[in-house]
């Protein structure tokens, strides 16, 4: 194909859209992270204005500094929020894997005509509103919720368990919300495994468990890795779950950003928090992409 007019237009349209609504906003975030907070509208300074010409622009650039980042580094609460986000996301990912693997395995081993239905059943909750799914857990986990009522009725506990507004509730929320993201890649890699491989392993003297450990598990690793990244990456920046299920003590960085912006109206610090959040995410994202690429090549 040649570089003709229509072809250029085809590229230009989505390109410009993404440039305007993704790239430019991103640059603005960087700029505001380097600005000072003021009590005005918009609540940051300096603002770029073309009226003052090049000199004004230069002055505006000169006023940019790393004050907001210094603030983040000096106030221990941000560091704690970052570390806690990583910790919560990591533990929740592991839990999701432990719950998701047996389910995905059972789906892959289900009779052929059942698999599509099971897949649908796993995906279906994903289509229902995220908020509703979190909301459902509030009714279960709160002090006078279903879980405590049931346990007390059964006589297992006298006092309601305080799960709501703790990190445990956040773990449950993340596992519940992101379980389909774990199950789907796991199922895809498990289902692809040729059943004859296991027959061959057993024929060569493996027990069923040994065959699982030596054949199935290694071959499903790409799915494990993909699933873990798909849960871990969004969990780090999660806002709704820690906000609704976690307590005031549950520090997570997405929630911190939200509070800085909406409660403290400190746009500069919020933007700085966003930048640091992205820098933290770059490592797992790049690793994930490498892994996907390698996996694709192996399949292709």
């Amino acid at each position: 194909m040649s570089t003709s007019g229509p072809r250029r237009l085809l590229i230009l349209l989505p390109y410009l859209w993404l440039g305007l609504f993704f790239l430019v906003p991103f640059l603005i975030v960087i700029k505001i992270a380097l600005s000072d907070s003021v009590t005005a509208s918009p609540p940051y300074a300096p603002t770029f204005s073309l009226d003052e010409g090049l000199a004004g622009l230069r002055a505006a650039f000169a006023a940019l500094d790393f004050e907001n980042f210094v603030w983040l580094a000096e106030d221990g609460i941000y560091l704690k929020a970052y570390l806690n986000s990583v910790k919560v996301a990591a533990i929740a990912t592991l839990l999701t894997l432990m719950i998701g693997y047996p389910v995905a395995y059972a789906m892959a081993k289900a009779p052929q005509d059942w698999r599509k239905t099971l897949l649908l059943l796993v995906i279906l909750p994903f289509w229902t509103s995220f908020l509703i799914r979190i909301y459902a857990w509030i009714g279960i986990l709160k002090n006078e919720g279903f879980l405590n009522l049931t346990l007390m009725k059964l006589g297992l506990i006298d006092q309601p368990l305080a799960i709501m507004h703790t990190e445990i509730a956040v773990y449950i929320g993340i596992v519940y919300s992101y379980l389909p993201f774990m199950i789907l890649p796991l199922y895809a890699s498990l289902e692809r495994i040729d059943g004859r491989l296991l027959e061959a392993a057993e024929d060569l003297g493996c027990s069923a468990f040994a065959a699982f450990r030596q054949i199935t598990l290694p071959l499903s690793l790409p799915g494990v890795v993909a699933g873990c990244f798909l849960v871990f990456i969004p969990a780090i920046g999660e806002f709704v779950i820690p906000d609704l299920l976690g307590g005031s003590g549950t520090l997570m960085i997405g929630k911190t950003l939200w509070l800085e912006f909406f409660s403290n109206r400190d746009w500069g610090v919020a933007a700085a928090v966003a930048i640091v959040l992205l820098t933290i995410l770059i490592v797992p994202i790049v690793l994930f992409q490498r892994h996907q690429q390698k996996h694709q090549e192996e399949l292709g």
Partner: peptide, 22 residues
């Protein structure tokens, strides 16, 4: 630009767009 928004935390996407609109 196509793939980044897929992994971008919603809070960051929301914040950056708001800042653009302002």
């Amino acid at each position: 630009m196509i793939y980044a928004p897929l992994v971008m935390p919603e809070v960051v996407t929301g914040l950056s767009l708001l800042l653009l609109f302002v």
